[in-house]
Design a protein around this nucleic acid. Sequence first.
DNA 1: GAAGAAAACTTCGCACACGAAACATCGCCG
DNA 2: CGGCGATGTTTCGTGTGCGAAGTTTTCTTC
Lengths: 169, 169
Amino acid sequence: MSRIPEVLKEQVDRIAEAIIYLYTESRRLTKDQAAKVGLTGPQLTVVKILDELGDLSLSELSDRIRAQNSTVTGIVDRMEREGLVDRKRSAEDRRVVHIQLTDKGQKLARGLNFEPFSIFRHAIQQALEPQELLQLLGLLDKLAKWVRTEVEGESTGERTKKRASNDDD
Amino acid sequence: MSRIPEVLKEQVDRIAEAIIYLYTESRRLTKDQAAKVGLTGPQLTVVKILDELGDLSLSELSDRIRAQNSTVTGIVDRMEREGLVDRKRSAEDRRVVHIQLTDKGQKLARGLNFEPFSIFRHAIQQALEPQELLQLLGLLDKLAKWVRTEVEGESTGERTKKRASNDDD
DNA sequence: GAAGAAAACTTCGCACACGAAACATCGCCG
DNA sequence: CGGCGATGTTTCGTGTGCGAAGTTTTCTTC
């Protein structure tokens, strides 16, 4: 069961710390950048995704940004209020709502020269050698895969419904 | 400027994705676990930290959990309401508020057999060989260090005041 | 030792973020 | 056709999470 000597416990903690640090700091900086063009962090992400992929249903959007539908409803509400996106009922399935960028939203998206979490991406590129980069990717993939199977297998029959169809993201 | 061939752009994105995935999924699971004992995610973290380190001022607590004072004020408010912690004005410096676990809070903390982000820690231990673990730590430290200097150097004189005193965490 | 800067908290307003419940629509099965 | 479970979205209540402004206390500096 325990492949890892007790001595490495501290290292495990430091890895966790580092990931938490990288994530929170990146989010904070993304938010700052977004604020300069009048957006919030999540709104910036939505604008970029819609510009890249075209219209999406609210559920598809939720999957993309790893949030619940109820969360995204709120984000879209505020973006609609600002005239950045429109809601369009689907003709084929009238339960579905398609979210689309307005002209204003699209213009905004294309005028941006940064991505969400860009500090993060910069760090990866600037701080690491190509070979290290690939190493890191391999290790993180291994971790992510382990978590994925654990999460989907573990739950006692409940709570597994969502987030089961992530193949390529 | 760009040490990285264009080909690796996709790998960079995948690294970012992986970290975001690991963080958000861990947080979600931590929250689920905490809910079983009537706590929220951040509350679980606070309880564990206070049990481990003893009383802390609100600012020290903020640093530990990487949140702003105004956020922690709210968390402590609700925990105080639930009788998990007490606020004590410091005698030496009457601006300072010490947060301490109540008996109830301490009993709760010690009854828990899991840590915040424990899925995460498990993944690190179970999915990786000791040697990979050290490799990963090295790479993440490198990234974190780069971000740290970038963040503290970059800003045009503003917004750097906070978060300058992290040496060992 | 008093004016003013600085530090520690709190308050306020806003934007996520989630789960549970409500609602509308679709699909199927008889 | 008509029920009826499943699916897509919204609503609601609660809990973060942040920055700006406000309050109290301490520190500085003259």
